[in-house]
């Protein structure tokens, strides 16, 4: 009995938090525009007139992409940290972080996406070069 009461209280809290969260979505503008999300949702047979749900989907996608991007950023930083000292000195000048296929595929693998990219596919003449030596 006591346990039930506790859980119902907790449920009330959850519901309050949830409704608050959904209400906050009305004011929140996700990076992925509503129109785009609606387009994809309509394409997949998702019907819902509620803007909050569309925002929720947009936020979820944004969170997923942000997590993947964050993971690849960590991979990128780890890779840069492992470069030997003398090279790193040069690198201190430009603190550019570039989203590369290498880091991205590593990050995506953890999310169940197996990215297979061509090893020597050069989308720019400087692709094969070391990121540090690109500007030289």
């Amino acid at each position: 009995m006591n346990n039930n009461q506790q859980s119902s209280e907790g449920r009330h809290d959850d519901d309050a938090a949830l409704s608050e969260f959904l209400a906050s979505l009305m004011d929140y503008t996700p990076t992925i525009p509503d129109e785009l999300v609606e387009h994809y949702l309509a394409k997949s047979g998702f019907q819902c007139p509620d803007v909050r749900l569309i925002r929720l989907v947009a936020v979820a996608t944004q969170k997923f992409i942000a997590e993947v991007a964050n993971d690849s950023l960590q991979h990128c930083k780890a890779r840069q940290a492992s470069i030997i000292k003398d090279k790193r000195d040069k690198q201190q000048k430009d603190k550019r972080t570039i989203l590369t296929m290498e880091d991205l595929s590593k990050a995506l693998r953890e999310y169940g996406v197996n990215v297979k990219h061509q090893e020597y596919f050069a989308d720019s003449p400087t692709t094969g070069l070391d990121p540090a030596s690109r500007d030289e």
């Binding site: 942000a66 991007a69 989203l99 296929m101 991205l104 989308d123 720019s124």
Partner: peptide, 19 residues
């Protein structure tokens, strides 16, 4: 935009397309 907000300054075209 999301990548930029995370902290990337630039991205390979192929990587961005994949993402």
């Amino acid at each position: 935009q999301i990548c930029q907000s995370v902290g990337f300054t630039s991205a390979q075209r192929s990587a961005l397309n994949t993402l």
